[in-house]
Amino acid sequence: MEAVGPPPAPTAVAPRHWRRRFPLTAFLVRRIAAGLVLLLATSAFIFFATQILPGNVAQVVLGRNATPQSVASLEAKLGLDEPVVTRYVDWLGNAVTGDFGDSAVQLGQGAKSAPVASELGEPLRNSLILAGITVLLMIPLSFLLGVYAATRAGKPGDHITSLTSLVIGAFPEFVFGTLLILVFFSLLNVLPPVALVPPGTSPLAEPEALVLPILTLLGVTLAAGIRQVRGGMIDVLESNFVALAEINGLPRRRILWRYALRNALPASIQIIAQNILYLLGGIIIVESVFAYPGVGTFLVEAVNTRDVTAVEAVSLILAAIYISINILADFLVVVLVPKLRTRL
């Protein structure tokens, strides 16, 4: 037997350390730890950027005509008389336990206590429902249409799919949403122009209200997803190993699934994760377009009234979701790419 040469791969000797024995778990732990550090940095940025820059929160909230006394009293209520760093540490400590502080605006209007956390519950749930349904539709559709377009690259089916997604994907969300309203409300009058969900009811009880927001979000994110999945799939279809499989006469179906799609999967997952992340931004606008009572509308309202505590709360939650999705996508990619997995 010929000397096979040293395999670059790990040897058969069982390493003792758990990191070696469970490399995937170790990777996940490492990524989560890094994510937490990033979240910490993010929280500091959110806190300082919203509060410390010019002006005084209490003054801004109460307006120019406020008396110095009322400003001072609001400052005391918000704890603004303490040093910045102390306030940040307190805020972060409370946020970890789910207490995001009191709404500055409502305190300024005379409320005794107005915990942001309790007001956030319902918008958060509404937004999750909206985003969840969109994602559930987006993932399979991105795949199906992207792969479909790639396998018929250059043919009419591809041109139609690609051009449509190019055009729809180009629109700003509010423009696409508005155009949908013009078509389905002004022109056809089959769907409501706003997605009003009365407080205390679930949006699922008002499915009509959800249709246009979902269509808008889907239009904008799906378009990008299809185009990129298609591109990734074409790259793989043009790779040497696919060509070799064809030349050596493997069945078309096997090549498509096990050679092309399987290797296009990791890139597609990254693309879809990107689009879910994009959705987080898009949802802010889309909710505003349809006056849908979710975190997006809540956030825009808070920015408009300079309700700093509310902005901070929503920002922190969105940033945490953003970071989590990134970690999940990285993890899936590592699981799916043997080269990455075996080299952990």
Binding site: F45, A49, T50, L53, L280, G281, I284, V311, S315, A319
Partner: peptide, 20 residues
């Protein structure tokens, strides 16, 4: 990387909150 770890629109909203 840090800037990219925010949803873009959220970053704009945070800046507007801070800077007016």
């Amino acid at each position: 990387d840090f800037i990219l770890s925010f949803p873009a629109l959220l970053l704009l909203l945070i800046l507007v909150t801070g800077l007016g």
